[in-house]
Design a protein around this nucleic acid. Structure first.
Length: 482
DNA sequence: CAACAGGAAGTCA
DNA sequence: TGACTTCCTGTTG
């Protein structure tokens, strides 16, 4: 078991270490792309947010590097290198594109009009803290919940902020409450255009989870920007200018969409699957289902219920999802909808939205987070010299062991047949090759080339075919099998 | 037809 | 220079 996470780095017999983190953070040069939302996309997202009613386990904050949770599989913590890698990636701070490296990411709240209930100063800066925003001089009118807990999603439940309660801090829960009040008021007073109206929204749970994800702020490299949150509240309370409401909500939703899209992209990288579910193979579908179940701490479902390709999966109704995965069906269905929304054909329309980028936020032009850039980012040193993650300088045999070490994620692509003897089988050669190509930033990688590299290992004594040669079955030689 | 084997040349850090 | 990557021909099941 030692080698799964520690052997490779600890062994002095191996030619190269394997980084623990595989997903590269977005580099400064590639930046991140803000995803403005078109009205159609916003409408869709709002519908999703209102329709999707994930279980309690989805209401938990994603882990951050300051408070990393245990991997989703506590019974096999060492086997979740890739899941951990995803968390590492999510928590990776986006480097500042300019010289202000090391400065505190901040957001400025600049109300467009006088604000009666909340005491905003004309230019209020929010200093980023884990799970909390610090706003000097800000006093929320909404009491904290007795528990002081905050909603979060993922499998790791509560993350209490290390920051003590203080008037100068805005608890994220306060913001969420305010957000809910704003939304309720907006809906009651029909500030949203008919197109944006939601059919009986139960709760904007996913929006909550996106907004409270502090890594989301890091990724966006938030600097003082006029969010004009005050104006939203003002208009509903005073019956002011309706036109100011939708753009503000759009902006928030745009940021939520951005967060969702990045989560999707991260998952794509980790699983080595296409962002477009229509392109998924049967193995991709199973990998996605497994990952989603793990990520939201949902009960396992029989994988044979999802023996289908992506096109078939997309064609499933919510009822069919519920039949195949009783408790997890609705969540899987909602997640798939989000994937389709954020990565499907609408994505381009989404990116082309004319909603302006807030001042201080990186524009769409200097932000890029598509798969290619993530892969490219693996070869870049990011964050002013911070160690890179998911290096392209990894040996194939190490990479294969990484995959083998994550059976919950990659078990449908590659798995051990005889672990003690280092015998494994590639179940999905296309996917393994795709993962390898992604890691090495070689889009043209295929199994033919990958297997050629494996065969180079024969004379090096790293790998071999088993005595009774079987298709797609290989064996690590000693000590590489350890 | 896909997997397999291995030669040869090219790429890249 | 090592570790692939790319392309190739030919073989095997």
């Amino acid at each position: 078991m030692l080698w799964e996470t520690g052997f490779i780095e600890e062994s002095d017999t191996m030619p190269q270490t394997v980084p623990r983190s595989g997903c590269s953070p977005p580099s400064a040069s590639q930046g991140e792309r803000a995803v403005p939302a078109s009205p159609a996309d916003l409408q869709h997202l709002l519908r999703l947010l209102g329709a999707a009613s994930p279980p309690e386990s989805m209401l938990h904050s994603p882990p951050n590097p300051h408070n990393k949770p245990p991997p989703p599989y506590p019974e096999d913590n060492t086997n979740n290198v890739f899941l951990e890698r995803l968390y590492d990636f999510e928590g990776y701070p986006t480097p500042s594109p300019s010289s202000d490296e090391g400065s505190i990411p901040a957001v400025a709240l600049q109300p467009a009009s006088p604000y009666s209930s909340l005491q905003y100063s004309p230019q209020v800066y929010i200093k980023e803290e884990p799970n909390r925003l610090a706003v000097p001089g800000f006093a929320s009118p909404y009491p904290l919940s007795p528990s002081g807990s905050c909603v979060s999603y993922g499998s790791h439940n509560q993350y209490s902020s290390p920051v003590p309660q203080h008037d100068e801090y805005i608890d994220i829960e306060e913001l969420l409450k305010e957000n809910q009040i704003l939304q309720d008021s907006v809906q009651q007073q029909s500030y949203l255009t008919p197109k944006l109206e939601v059919e009986e929204p139960r709760d904007h749970i996913l929006l909550r989870s996106a907004l409270e994800d502090t890594s989301f702020q890091k990724r966006l490299n938030l600097r003082p920007i006029p969010l004009e949150l005050g104006s939203v509240k003002m208009e509903e309370s005073s019956g002011g200018d309706d036109s100011l409401v939708a753009p503000d909500i759009d902006r928030v939703l745009s940021m939520a969409i951005e967060q969702t899209k990045r989560d999707v992209d991260n998952t794509c990288t980790v699983l080595g699957i296409s962002p477009d579910p229509m392109l998924w193979s049967t193995g991709d579908v199973k990998a996605w289902v497994m990952f989603t179940l793990q990520h939201y701490n949902l009960p396992m479902v029989p994988m044979e219920n999802f023996t289908m390709d992506g096109a078939a999966l997309v064609a499933l109704t919510e009822e069919e999802f519920n039949q195949r995965a009783s408790q997890a069906g609705s969540t899987l269905y909602a997640q798939l909808e989000i994937w389709r929304t954020s990565q499907g054909p609408d994505h381009h329309q989404l990116s082309a939205s004319p909603i302006p980028t807030p001042a201080g936020l990186p524009s769409a032009d200097d932000m890029s987070d598509d798969e290619d850039s993530e892969s490219a980012g693996t070869s870049a040193t990011v964050g002013g010299g911070k160690a890179k993650t998911g290096s392209t300088h990894i040996h194939l045999w190490q990479f294969l062991k990484e995959l083998l070490a994550s059976p919950h994620v990659h078990g449908s692509a590659i798995r051990w047949l005889d672990r003690s003897n280092g015998v494994f089988k590639i179940e999905d050669s296309v996917r393994v090759a795709r993962l390898w190509g992604k890691r090495k930033n070689r889009p043209a990688m295929n199994y033919d080339k990958l297997s050629r590299s494996i065969r180079q290992y024969y004379k090096k004594g790293i790998m071999k075919k088993t005595e009774r040669s079987q298709r797609l079955v290989y064996q690590f030689c000693h000590p590489y099998c350890l």
